[in-house]
Amino acid sequence: MFVKNGTGELKKVLVSRPEYLKPAPINEIAKKWKDTTMDVDVMLREHEEFVKSYEDAGVEVEFLDADDERPNSVFARDFGGCVKEGYILGNFKLDMRYKEHVDYEKRMAELGIPKIGEVKEGLFEGGDFMFMNEKWVAVGMADRTDEAGLAELKAILEPLGYEVTGVPLKREYLHLDMCFNLVDDHLAVAYVDGLPEEFKKLLAERGIELIPVPEEAIFLHGCNLQALGNHCVLSLKQNKKVNEELVKRGMKVIEMDITEILKAGGGPHCMTFPLVRI
């Protein structure tokens, strides 16, 4: 078994260091920083803190070596999605990320994780892949995953017994994990008004409580949290209100002081590809 759901105990992850990361104007956050130079030393220190947070929590960390030909591979989440049977390789929208297809596929083979399918005709990035429970997957459709990609995901996952729900979003939100994130079995952080009514109805029917955030929180990574399991979550130090609300609901919050990496448009969830979750 590899990844059985989105909130069980996280045991192993795949990440990549931000040695060549730049604020390429490919999302709404990075556009604001496109004329600045990101401090590599600061980013590497932040990433070390990120990795140490995992290791201190008992999570094994695997790495894909950084490469100047794929500067955004620090956002390891995006190359695909992992379920208990193996992983699905995605299909990037942007040319600058194409090399990640090759290098992450090779690394997954080295780690012994089978590829159970691949999105080839449509678009699919892992920031849109959200495990809701052991048999239900939500798939965001904002800027980087489309209807054709969703259809291919359904063709791969539904024969394995998974329910796959498409979640249409505003293009500016980039990925589902920027505006919605499941942090515990029945608890999520979300910009509620940005979610489609049908999806919100499903959440209510299945007893998932939403901690609401304002729309501006999307672009400050207020929803981009990483569930560790056992009612524990990785968050950002700057997410004061969200973190307070999580603690009120019995969650343990591990805060990280990360700001420089965020300028490229991704947070802790974006930087994590789960390999084993039980």
Rank of each mutant, 00 (worst) to 15 (best):
M132S: 01
I211P: 03
L111E: 08
F131A: 04
V40G: 03
G265D: 04
D184K: 07
N230K: 15
Y54G: 00
E134P: 06
P25K: 08
K106M: 15
L195E: 01
V233L: 13
Y173W: 12
M43T: 12
E100W: 11
N230A: 15
E215M: 12
Y173V: 13
G207R: 07
L169Y: 06
Y54V: 01
E55S: 10
G222A: 09
P18M: 11
G265M: 10
K120D: 05
A24Y: 10
A109V: 13
M108K: 04
T272Y: 12
P196W: 06
D146M: 02
D184R: 05
E105A: 15
D184M: 08
D39Y: 02
H175Y: 07
L123D: 05
K237E: 15
D41G: 11
C270Y: 06
L14H: 04
I156F: 13
D185W: 11
P18C: 07
I113S: 08
N224G: 02
R249S: 10
K201D: 09
T272M: 14
S16Y: 11
M141T: 14
L157F: 05
P196Y: 09
S235L: 06
A57N: 13
F124E: 01
M178C: 07
A190M: 03
E255H: 08
T272R: 08
I113M: 14
L44S: 08
S235C: 12
F63P: 06
G161K: 04
G6L: 13
E245Q: 15
L64S: 02
K84L: 11
L21S: 00
V247Y: 09
L182W: 04
V253S: 05
G117Q: 15
P114T: 04
E215N: 06
R171D: 13
K201Y: 01
L21C: 00
K115H: 10
M108R: 03
R144I: 04
E163I: 02
L220F: 08
H221N: 15
V74I: 14
L21R: 01
R171T: 14
V276G: 04
M38Y: 08
E125I: 14
T36K: 07
Y191R: 06
L262V: 14
K12P: 00
N5K: 07
V119F: 00
M96S: 13
G127F: 04
A57M: 14
D56P: 03
K4V: 14
F129G: 02
I278K: 11
